[in-house]
Design a protein around this nucleic acid. Sequence first.
DNA 1: TGGATGATCGCA
DNA 2: GCGATCATCCAG
Length: 184
Amino acid sequence: MILTADFFARPTLKVAPDLLGATLFVQTDAGRCSGRIVEVEAYLGAEDPASHAFGGPTPRSAVMFGPPGRTYVYFIYGMHHCLNFVTEPEGTAGAVLIRGIEPLEGMDLMRARRGKFLDKDLCNGPGKLCQALGIVRKCSGLTLGHGPDGGIWVLDRAEKPDIEASRRIGIRKGEELPYRFSIS
DNA sequence: TGGATGATCGCA
DNA sequence: GCGATCATCCAG
């Protein structure tokens, strides 16, 4: 079953672990890719110092305050994109960063986009999986789902995996919070 | 272990 | 306007 806005219109800390084991699909003109979500991080709203929504909306973070079940894609470190899903009811900010997937469909396309790198390094990082899936900043603000010209969507998991919580990676504030979730 | 690389945002 | 910051990746 495809996850819709209802699934995302909940507290971010509940949505994030529930995404582990679900399947992410990205379809473009080039073809379809999919993978099993194995690592995510929760970013809360205006009260989370590590969140782009910290302190209130800006032009970049506005989509995080909008309706749930949309994508939030940003560009970071001058060379990488990161894919998030917007959570919480409209008016409240929140997002889940997708940090790692296990490739299922479209591995040839992913290899072509990623270049010479090994299969084990195709999608095991937020920047890498965006490159493999062809996600760039114009993919931000899209409603999850698939239409005639492709799209990004998530298929719910069949069974709940064993989940491990740990600290978020690569941030300088709020690093003590166990908001990173992965399949153990 | 550190260099690449550029959008974003707060402050002037 | 300007510059510090940054939810990263990869070569050596």
